[in-house]
Design a protein around this nucleic acid. Structure first.
Lengths: 234, 234
DNA sequence: TGGGCCTCTATTGTATACAATTTGATGGCG
DNA sequence: CGCCATCAAATTGTATACAATAGAGGCCCA
């Protein structure tokens, strides 16, 4: 049966990497066959992968079900951050009430790793992202709300987090680590309102850093949004 | 190509009806083959349908990917209503700022239909549900947030809405219609805070009606939650 | 020259056969 | 009597062939 390495998972991972790796331009048409070639599997598992990527809105389909690389407009970015603030704030609140001692020390471990990645000369972005993901995943797990976890997965995975971290300066990264410190403090105090507030400012700061970076350096990205819009004309 | 009636959509609809129609018991194992028989199509479109139903958490899989009828515990119900309140409150807020004149009159039309269904002797539940769905869908559309719409679809579709409406008394239904009246008033006034507040009380009332009905009349439903839990042991 | 129709091709949808894996049972052995 | 190995049956995963549909481009006719 579908082993530990199901072809559909491989397809998902490879297509995702292809989409985020910069080889695909928003608005480009893709066919199941091309994607099957990229993933090195047949169309059947590719179809499952494309469904998942549609759910994440990395792919979109036009009226006749043809597949296109999605474009992320400024509105999309705004939307993501607003929803994340609301949902992850909620998760933090719940987590503050429910965290176990083990989860608390997991958070502290992730946070140590995170500090390690950014507190010295040259920040290690990959390590930062790993620790950051673990940290937020622990919070969502502690919130003990399976649907919330499922929804968050749709919002957190997408390209925004990756690009955000890349646009962070060393000081931004360190401030992010300090936010995590304060979150741990709020959890220790079991103060839901505090946890929510810290999470809110954490994400709003990330939003502004991302938007500033996008508006100044990466003008070409924002230019592309004018061409093919989210509903993939064609 | 996959016509207007794709087999996978048929499969989705039929399996869904099977799951909600009471013929399936929480914890029951289902196989793709059985479902294919129920749907009258081959396993390929059934697989797509099961993925969608997994996302809606009407189906769950165990560690070895076998499929089971999901069980909805009291915690699940709580979770659904908390998330709906948060997200639909947010949608109402945004809608209050963005509603077009057309959408406003659409809401009023849905609401007239809704009153028509419940303001006389014997309430017409089906008609009520239709109008109710239209009403809430218009609000979500007016919120102009595609990801929010996608997430709401995961939370609103499931069995809860259906069962809630069935447990409404005639007076409950009329109060629900009055809530809708007040929502329209809030939208007319373009008052986001008012809209959110009305939506909140609307949903919290629904929650309590549902829970009371479940705890008194349908004790057998709640009994089943003890047996097979959401992660479908087996 | 322009518009409508028609064919041909590209692309997605479905069925089916086969592969891989898990489960459950059966039987041997300590 | 219990436990582990091994095999058969049940179940999911993948590939591939075929069906159905939408798109593109040419052709005819006005």
């Amino acid at each position: 049966m579908g082993a530990i390495n199901r072809a559909s998972d491989i397809a998902y991972a490879k297509i995702r990497a292809f989409l985020l790796g910069g080889d695909a331009n928003p608005g480009d048409q893709l066919t199941e066959e091309k994607l099957a070639e990229i993933a090195g599997v047949s169309r059947t598992p590719v179809r499952e992968a494309t469904r998942r990527l549609e759910a994440e809105m990395l792919l979109v389909r036009n009226a006749s079900k043809r597949i296109f690389v999605a474009d992320w407009s400024r509105d999309d970015i705004d939307e993501i951050f607003v929803l994340r603030e609301m949902l992850e704030g909620h998760a933090a609140e719940r987590a503050a009430r429910r965290l176990t001692a083990t989860q608390l020390s997991d958070l502290e471990a992730s946070n140590r790793k995170l500090h390690h990645a950014v507190d010295y000369e040259t920040p290690d972005i990959t390590s930062f992202l790993d620790a950051n993901r673990d940290f937020h995943e622990t919070i969502v797990a502690a919130a003990h709300s399976p649907r919330l976890a499922q929804i968050m997965a749709l919002l957190v995975d997408p390209p925004v987090v990756l690009r955000t971290a890349r646009s962070y300066s060393a000081e931004n990264l360190r401030q992010s680590a300090r936010d995590h410190d304060e979150l741990v403090a709020a959890f220790r105090a079991r103060d839901p309102a505090w946890a929510r507030a810290v999470m809110g400012s954490h994400l709003r700061r990330a939003f502004h850093i991302f938007v500033n970076a996008a508006e100044t350096t990466t003008t070409q990205t924002m230019d592309r949004t004018d061409n093919a819009s989210c509903d993939a004309a064609k």
